[in-house]
Design a protein around this nucleic acid. Structure first.
Lengths: 296, 296
DNA sequence: GGAAGAAGCTGACTAGAGTCAGAGAATGGA
DNA sequence: TCCATTCTCTGACTCTAGTCAGCTTCTTCC
């Protein structure tokens, strides 16, 4: 890693935590402790105590105490969940909503104040650079994990994948038609399912099927609409290729539908070349292949 | 202010405090309280307690206590300043330097880790955007204050101004030659001295001299070398013009030396036009003037 | 030389943030 | 049915961060 890059990141951290971090805390702290404000904010439309705990990464006893305090202030009510009476649901009262709106306004005002100190041209450049940093920092916190196809997260991904293709393909799409990739095929050693996770939520996936010394077969590659524009597709593809090479596959091949123009452009720019059809996938119009370096 | 800009700033704040803020604190907190680590860091080559207090914006008693704690840990020693025995100087011991180096390395490692998750092109874009955000946030936290010319900060500015001109002008420069602007001239109602401050340190200044209904005379405008490239000169000029207009001056005029090419370019682009010499300033080669809108 | 003020220190205090052990209610599986 | 587990809550702590008043020592200005 280049030293000047590291130094820049550190300068950025220092300046930003001084400017933004301090302000951010100040706006949330309205006569009430910061922890309470953050909780109030996080409750929003109503959440169970457990999810609040994991979202804010706080001790269970601590959250409990904060909730009691918010309850005493008349901002929050809690009640047992009908589904599981051990779990308690917290929701905002009318006063709680009012308080939350106030925090919202203060937050807006603070952002406006920051921008107001700069003349117009610099302001626009700042906002643009902030958007870029935000986008790339988000991308940087995406993690890839090989996941069991029966995992709820994995099922969710595949359902979302199918739902989008059903809309985009002429004549729709179903996981049950065409060449299938059932749970058993997608588990090692037959294959694998890679999921891209962002802060605990899936934002993309891809499947590899292995067949001895033949090329690995790539399917179900997909990035959530909300996570596009982060260069995630390219990274997902690279990670899948790495896994295929690690498994000893001499190449990766895949088929795709001509409706998926961005995907096709991605494959081409990543070094894939179009080859004659290597299977009879009814949904496919194009077949691609890319050789892999030997493992190790 | 545009709503989408505000929303972008808020998204940036959220993402950055989550990603960077948390990490930043975690790296500094090495079994020792964060306040002590920050102080350790700030002491560096040795500083007086007073400057530490203002730099970190902490209570004097609190800093004192933190220093005692660092002293007890053998990381810091303090001794009275020879110049003023009320002031105490803090400096790092060998162990203190070792600890500081360790913090440094951890900080580097953290930054490198963040960058390593991104592929090369995105990494470069992130660093570039971070540089831009840092630069503009720094610019946004500059504040302007009319300051008494006998204030140490003001004296410091004028000395630095003179020192730079002495280097840049053919034949040197001295505040005592040419047309002078002594303390009494630079105090209301005769005139004023505006200082640009960044986090408690001066980064630029400018002087206005008023003479009834005549144009206000702008002198001593200067931006610290370390603070250039932030668009500060333009803002300083605008602020001085605002103050002159507020005072009822019909215009601002100024003279300048041809060695100060950036300044001349700034004046021109800010709407100043060159006029015949309106005084006999020996250091000057160019005279400029710009009309002001009436006050109110 | 004396008064006023600056710099730093100490003691006494508060509030926030969080940890930990254990209790009690509800649930789920054998 | 019973036992282990989950979820939440309470009580009893700790530690950090910070404030405030008042003190001593030293400097500066008249």
């Amino acid at each position: 890693m280049d030293e000047t890059m590291i130094a820049q990141v550190r300068r950025f951290n220092r300046v930003v935590t001084q400017q933004v971090g301090a302000l951010n805390d100040r706006f949330l702290a309205r006569d009430r402790p910061l922890g309470e404000s953050r909780l109030l904010w996080e409750i929003g439309d109503g959440r169970d105590v457990r999810s609040l705990r994991t979202a804010l990464d706080l001790d269970s006893g601590y959250v409990s105490r904060l909730l009691r305090s918010l309850e005493a202030a008349g901002l929050v009510t809690t009640q047992p969940s009908p589904a599981d009476r051990r779990v308690r649901l917290a929701r905002l009262t009318e006063a709680g909503w009012a308080e939350r709106r106030l925090l919202d306004e203060r937050s807006d005002a603070l952002a406006a104040e920051l921008l107001a100190t700069l003349p117009g041209r610099q302001r626009e450049r700042l906002v643009a650079a902030m958007a870029e940093v935000e986008r790339l920092l988000t991308a940087a916190s995406v993690r890839f994990a090989v996941t069991d196809p029966d995992d709820p997260v994995a099922r969710h991904c595949l359902r979302a994948y199918a739902a989008e293709l059903d809309v985009r393909f002429d004549g729709g799409f179903s996981l049950d038609h065409g060449i299938r990739a059932d749970a058993a095929d997608v588990r090692p050693p037959n294959g694998l399912l890679l999921v891209a996770m962002l802060h605990g939520a899936p934002v993309g996936c891809g499947v590899l099927l292995f067949r001895d010394a033949e090329p690995a077969h790539l399917k179900r590659m997909w990035v959530y609409e909300s996570a596009r524009g982060l260069g995630l597709g390219r990274r997902l593809l690279a990670e899948l290729e790495r896994l295929a090479a690690e498994h000893g596959a001499p190449a990766v091949r895949l088929e795709t539908n001509s409706a998926l123009t961005e995907a096709i452009a991605l494959y081409r720019s990543a070094g894939y070349t179009e080859v004659p059809p290597f299977n009879a996938e009814p949904y496919a119009h194009h077949w691609f292949q890319k050789p892999l370096p030997p493992p190790g």
